[in-house]
Design a protein around this nucleic acid. Structure first.
Lengths: 241, 241
DNA sequence: TTAGTGCGGATACAACGTACACACCGATGT
DNA sequence: ACATCGGTGTGTACGTTGTATCCGCACTAA
């Protein structure tokens, strides 16, 4: 009775289930498991230990493949970017850029944690991400623009997409964090603090938007409208090379 | 000798320095200290314990004023937004929006941690932040636009600013994280992995930019050029109300 | 058969956020 | 003058995190 729960010795060890066929881990398996956890429970659930239990493995096991948490996140990013389907070759530059922006947003909404990456993963030059940049640049190629201008256009579009979707995701995160299920509920819960803010009288135009705006709750429309502005601005520069 | 380092008893307690005049803490003092730490050492240095030592106070003391780390971050955000000087009243809408975007970028570059806030703080409706939004809206007021359109324009601009500056900051963070001091050093250190990427031949246009681009290292020019595009796009919509 | 190589396990540590109970100070009611 | 009390900061403690380090095992090549 003494050693029952302490040291598993000999007999217990002899009937251990399976000697575990080696090569249980691989970068792909790690990435898939991590993405699954992050999708389901948010990026704060991504823990080296949690990942280990998910893989049915000791806490330190994954360190054979990734040098730390930052590496893991880069692996995850590249993994999900395989989902981003590039627009058909030959599509016009504006439509191509528009599609990539929309699909990037959809990708981020499918994987909310993409909006909360640490700096090291934000600009990581992973193969699949670079492929997307390349596709954008190719859309603008042959229009007589110099490389710098082309890149600025792509970066501008990407910045808008990241910023807008990031804000949208932050909103969602706050919602799930509080257990709210509709934006109506969010506004109701924020009503007190919002009213307090508005009643100071410091924000008259903002107040008018809150009371008269009609599209507050349509993120799709908001994103696409902003996207129009950005593409219009780029188009103006494309037209005058 | 026995109790020397253990229990400060009676005599030691009797000669305690000062009975500490109460009200040592205040939201302002807390915010200032926290911002100081975050500016100097990055957001990951913001720790309830670190903040406490900075204030010369016990680890749990600040919890009287902020309900947790999230609260603290919101306090910090509102604190630094006092630095954002609104453009002179009466400035034209385009110049006003441009100035706000530029100053927001400068603010973020002064406080790099603004780019790494958790969702709860990203969209926090703090007084000073809302004041900036109000100023933007006011710039567009009286042009015959409906509230939804005005807000989309402001949000678009803000999304671009956030996204672009966020990427710029991520780059800086990676640099300081590795102890690099110039972008040249970054590119040199990334050269191997960059060359590996480019040598796959999958990214010909991107490669051309890397080798022929001239403005890679001028973040100011990049930001302002993108800003032009966005404002041009908005202007097109303003002209056709 | 034996040595070697590399995968995964086990243990350990410092640092984190924060719950909880308590000691102290100054103001207040009597 | 004295007891009472609420608000402020203290002390201690717990569970969880990222990761360093060492070790034992199961294959492979000789």
């Amino acid at each position: 009775m003494a050693a029952q729960k302490d040291e598993p010795s000999l007999w217990e060890r002899l009937e251990r289930p399976a000697p575990a066929p080696r090569q249980t881990l691989s970068p792909e398996r790690i990435a898939t498991a991590a993405v699954g956890v992050a999708d389901a429970e948010g990026i704060e659930a991504i823990t080296m230990r949690r990942l280990a239990t998910e893989l049915g493995v000791a806490p330190m096991a994954a360190y054979r493949y990734v040098s730390g948490k930052d590496d893991l996140l880069q692996l995850m990013v590249d993994h999900v970017y395989t989902e981003l389907e590039p627009p058909e070759e030959g599509t016009g530059w504006r439509e191509a850029l528009r599609l990539i922006a929309l699909r990037t947003r959809e990708l981020m909404l499918r994987h909310l944690w993409l909006a909360q990456l640490p700096p090291s993963a934000v600009l990581a030059l992973t193969p699949n991400r670079t492929a997307t940049t390349e596709r954008c640049l190719r859309a603008l190629d042959g229009l007589g623009l110099d490389p710098d201008t082309m890149m600025t256009m792509v970066t501008t579009l990407h910045s808008y997409t990241l910023g807008a979707t990031g804000a949208e995701i932050a909103m969602r995160q706050v919602m799930v964090g509080h257990g709210w299920t509709s934006e109506q509920e969010v506004y109701k819960s924020m009503a007190r603090q919002l009213r307090h803010l508005l009643d100071t009288g410091r924000y008259p135009v903002f107040k008018r938007y809150i009371y008269e705006g009609r599209c507050k709750n349509d993120p799709d429309w908001q994103f696409e409208t902003g996207l129009q502005y950005v593409l219009d601005g780029i188009a103006a520069r494309v037209a005058v090379p």
